[in-house]
Design a protein around this nucleic acid. Structure first.
Lengths: 194, 194
DNA sequence: ATCGCTATGCAACAGATTGTTCTATAGTGA
DNA sequence: TCACTATAGAACAATCTGTTGCATAGCGAT
């Protein structure tokens, strides 16, 4: 058997990372310490040091746990307006209802100095961009997009606004906003040539 | 004379806040402590405690210093495309060349729990939105905008993308990007009715 | 049920950091 | 020159960090 399958290890690890993620989103990266997690969970400090001898590793695991989110398999049956609405709905839900929405600002702040935090963000963004790209590629294959549509730019806009609203401006991502946002992106995508 | 005019106080305060701002952007909010600033500046800890008995106040002063930026007086002579380019250029420059571009992620992360950090962000955003609003209002007065143009939504998009690129995605804000971004916003603003 | 194996809890420790208070020194304005 | 006060520095208890050694309890296998 693999060592990591010992149920005691699993339990300790899960309990610790849940608490770490909590501390991360409520007090910031630097507050995630062996001592703080120990106090929050009842796990003894020495045990936590055994699991994560380097504090950085524990923080990174907390990042990763928060960034892990449900599958983003794109729907590309068309029409574009429908696919777009579905994908943006998924993205909005992830920001609204998973820990990522709360932890992301902390990870972003940590990315200034922490390579692993930056890697977490880049991986996350790459996924989102790829999902939307699939939607646009399928739309183009169906002939819904004219030549020269700035797909990358549209994708960036589609993602930037909800992130900006949620993480930076502190504005809600509700259904009404979502509809008008998707509508604007869609109109931009199907704009006649200049 | 006012106590605060003693040159020793001014000097100590400036030196300390410069260092605090530096630590803020490089190591995060929680790293800004009396001890860290003392070590960075040579100012003795006891002096720093005299200036800011509460650590929170020192951090907030560091936030404010970073968020203070050059005047954003809008240019509203028209045409809209020109005004828009000018304003977005100012916003981009501020993100690229002032401390705000580096400190903002830390302030945003701190805003999760720190009311003053949130106030700093909200004030900053309100300024930016108001500046762009002036541009659109002037354009409407000149008859450049049709009725029903979703100005608030356009402003949000205009601001969201550069913030997203710079703070979240880690992408550059160069001239080429700026031109195509302004172009897209302009086309959206002057879109024919559905 | 028993027996190795090992993860955990607990206590102890040095070193660093924090918040506080005191005194001596040095810069300030009159 | 003189009174005032900001600063530096030292000392202190309290807390936090990183590490180690040992006893206990849970695990899988026989």
């Amino acid at each position: 058997m693999k060592l990591s399958e010992d149920p005691r290890i699993i339990a300790t690890r899960n309990l610790a990372l849940d608490a770490a993620q909590n501390i991360l989103q409520e007090e910031g990266v630097l507050a995630v310490t062996h001592g703080a997690v120990s106090k929050a969970t009842g796990i003894s400090r020495s045990t936590l040091y055994r699991h994560w001898p380097r504090l950085e590793a524990m923080r990174n695991d907390a990042f990763l746990r928060a960034a892990t989110s449900p599958n983003f398999a794109p729907m590309t049956n068309g029409p574009l307006r429908t696919d777009l609405g579905w994908m943006m709905g998924k993205l909005t839900t992830a920001l609204n209802e998973t820990p990522w929405g709360h932890v992301a600002p902390q990870v972003i702040a940590a990315a200034a100095t922490d390579k692993q935090a930056r890697a977490v963000i880049e991986g996350f963004m790459k996924d989102r961009i790829a999902s939307l790209e699939d939607v646009f590629v399928a739309a183009r294959a169906r002939g819904e997009l004219r030549e020269g549509t700035p797909v990358r730019q549209l994708i960036e806009m589609a993602i930037a606004v909800p992130y900006f609203r949620k993480l930076i401006a502190g504005l809600p991502l509700d259904q009404e906003w979502l509809d008008s946002h998707v509508d604007l992106i869609y109109r931009l995508a199907t704009l006649p040539p200049k």
